[in-house]
Design a protein around this nucleic acid. Sequence first.
DNA 1: TCCGTATACTTGAGTCGTCAACCACTCCAG
DNA 2: CTGGAGTGGTTGACGACTCAAGTATACGGA
Lengths: 142, 142
Amino acid sequence: MRLLRGHAATTRALNADLVASHGLTINDYETLLLLARAEDGRLRRVDLAEGLLLTPSGVTRLLNGLEAAGLVGKAECPGDARVTYAVLTEAGREKLEEASPGHLAAIRTLFEERFSPAELDVLAGLLARLSEAGEDEETCSA
Amino acid sequence: MRLLRGHAATTRALNADLVASHGLTINDYETLLLLARAEDGRLRRVDLAEGLLLTPSGVTRLLNGLEAAGLVGKAECPGDARVTYAVLTEAGREKLEEASPGHLAAIRTLFEERFSPAELDVLAGLLARLSEAGEDEETCSA
DNA sequence: TCCGTATACTTGAGTCGTCAACCACTCCAG
DNA sequence: CTGGAGTGGTTGACGACTCAAGTATACGGA
């Protein structure tokens, strides 16, 4: 799968940027983003796992870090004692806003420098299909 | 970078297949493949690193495993005492031939099931650009 | 009502890969 | 011929995940 390997370097570059400038992993960032977009800034671990394409245990570990940093907190679910919500703290929201411009700019240099808008559309469309359920795989938004 | 995330699941699936059926990682497989294609079935660690998009230390560790399994061996370079070639052993070549059909079939189900040949061409073309030197990055064949 | 299964989450162990530091060798300028 | 600078490779410490197993809660049916 030579095809997919290019992604590694790209992701690594974006990650390095983010770590250097804000001490956030790509997954950290993406977690904050997902939470910011979610209703009430909170999400169940399971849903986070699906959105991040991680296992539940990966999410637990990721959140440990973000909680230690004060960027997210926990909340219980009134209706279901099994779930612990991850909720974005004010600090978390600020961090996200602080990191976003640079990260988005980095993405732009990496992508819009290489692809025309039309090509980006095509690429997005094609790649989206990769994460579609092939048979019995989990679904997820591209 | 939601865009690139789809790759994770895809790669993971291919890897799991390969591990389950032949005890090879994707990178193991790809290493054997690279060696098989190389002249004399041998490659310097550095070149392997470039081909696999790994760091030199990653390659060292990867080869440790393959050497322990008897699938590759070492050879010295007559002209340069710094380099240690990785050379494909007979067992390695057999392993590769044994694993290829299944792996290729898996790739086909994952890709050709989702994309038409024309789309595959487009996708390959676009993705190849991701690994092109953007500024000062390492070059590498897609 | 109580059991069995499914779901949400955590934990321990292990894998794979990185980075930084290091050694060994090569090669060229002076 | 010698003293860097550059290149090939390995090692130790560590990070980010995964898998398997375990805990706790939820819920539908006999």
